[in-house]
Amino acid sequence: MAEAQLKKAYDGQWIPSYRLKSAVASQRWQGFVVAMLIVCSTITLATTVGIIVMLVTNSIGFFSSDKVELSKFLTDTQWTLGQSQGEIHYGILPLLSGTFRITAIAMLIAIPFGLITAVYLSEYASRRTRSILKPALEILAGVPTVVLGYVAIVFITPYFLQSLDDGFKAFNAASAGIAVGVLCLPLVTSLAEDALQAVPKTLREGALGLGSTKFETTMKVVLPAALSGIVSAFLLALARAIGETMVVALAAGSSPTFSLDPRLQSQTMTGYIVNTFQSDTVVPGSIAYHSVYAVAVVLFLITLMLTLLGQWVRRRYQEVYQ
C-alpha cells in the first residue's frame, strides 16, 4: 500500500481489511498446546503415584519376608539392620526416638527465635533493620543443608557442646538438633511474618487507640488474630525438620539408640535411609534394602500428615480476613 493509497484510505471510510489468518489453525494449535500442558501436569501426579506405589510394594516386600513381623517393627527397641553382624532387630522405635530428639531440639530453637524475629520484623522493625534482617534470613534459608551439617560436626560439637559437658559424643543429637533448628528458623520467621502481616491494620489501630502499648497490642490482639497462621508455620517447620537428611547424616551418627539423651549418637529415619543407599554392601532385594522402604513409609506418612494439617490450619485463617 503506497503512501498515496494510505492517504486515500484515511480520507475515506476505509477499514483495515487484509487476508485473514485461519482461525481454525490457531484453534488447533491451541488444542495441541493444551494437550502438551496437560501432559506436563500429569507428571506431578505420576510422581505422587510413583511414590505411593513404590512405598507400598516394597514395604510389602519387607513385611512378607519370613524373618519380619509387623508387631516387632512397631515395638522392638533395637534396630540392627545396616550394622555389621549379630542378631537382626528391626524395631523402628530407636530411629523414631532419634528423629524425635533432634526435632525437639530443633523446634526449641526455631520456634521461639523464629517467632520473636517475625514479631520484631512485622511490628517493630524500622526500614533499615528490615533491610539488614530480611536478606540475612534469605541467605540463611538458601544455605544448603549439607553446609549446616558440616558446621554441626566441625564447630558446634567440638567447640560448643563438648566444652559444656564431656558426655557429648563426637556424633550426637544435640549438635544435629541445633543445626536443624537454625535451618528451620528462616522458614518459621517468613511464614509467621506472613501470618502477622495478614492481620488487618485496623485491628492494631483499634487496640492502640484504646490506649494499649505496642507490646499489649502485639500480645493480646495481633498474635491471637494470627494464631492459626503461626501454628501452621510451626507445623510446616516441624515437617521440614523431620524430613531433614544431610545434617543428621553428618552430625547425628550412624547407630540408632532408643533413648532421650541428646548427648548420644542418634540415627534418624532419614539418616538410616541415606546411609543404607550410600553403602555398597546393601544388595537390592535383601531385608536391609527393603527395610528402607518400610522406614520411608513411616517418614512419608508423618510428614504428609503434618503438611496437610498445616495447610488446613492455614486455609482456615486465610478465610477469616478475605
Binding site: 500500500m1 494510505l6 484510505a9 484515511y10 476505509w14 483495515p16 487484509y18 487476508r19 485473514l20 489468518k21
Partner: peptide
C-alpha cells in the same frame, strides 16, 4: 493485525500509522 491478518511489514507500518492517526 499480527494476530488476524496475513500482512507484510510495509502494510503493517501503514496500518499502524492509519490507526494512530
Amino acid at each position: 493485525p499480527r494476530l488476524h491478518f496475513k500482512i507484510n511489514a510495509a502494510e503493517l507500518d501503514n496500518l499502524v500509522e492509519w490507526s494512530l492517526k
